[in-house]
Amino acid sequence: MTFRRDLALMWGGGGVLAPLGFFLGATMLVPLAMGPERALLQSAGPPLVWIAAALAVLATLERLFQADLEDGSLEQTLLSRAPLEALVLAKGLALWCAVGLPLALAGAPAAIALQAPVERIGVIVVSLGLGMAAFIGVGLVGAAVTAGVKRGGVLIALIVLPFFAPPIIFGSAVAAGEQVGAALAILTGCALAALALGPIAAAAALRLQAE
């Protein structure tokens, strides 16, 4: 129920198009910075899709809980029958559907444009989808601890970016075609762990924010 509402709020607020556009814009800058040489793009391009996707998710985190804290919705969810952890997880899943999944799908044309081998596109999209889940799980915590901070965008980035390291490492390995099976398995583990533990830490932080 809250999942559907969160999803509708994210769609309604134009929250889907902005990260998608950001992602494509960042991808476009890559060949402009490196030169359009195919060999160079082939080796460096696909992992850069990951950087662009990570930054695009990061940009959606700042207002995730801040709006709920400011307009009083957070207080209402504290009086709900559902545990706050579940509501936070629902919000994370809604963010994945509204932003993570479109970004993963947009990863296909972006990877092709950056000269990734066509037969690897499918696995890149799957890995991006898993990576987005891991980013969002960690991002929930970053968004929750900074919910009370005005203009906390840079702060969220600083807090969250080191925790993006594992998914970036394994995701880029998939994109570069190195040890794909192992990397995908670990990436799945990262996503599940982040979605399981992130909401617990984020809910604890949000209870404090409501004080």
Partner: peptide, 12 residues
Amino acid sequence: FIGHTNGLKPNV
């Protein structure tokens, strides 16, 4: 609990 804030989302 009805606080100072109304708990409303503008586009809903």
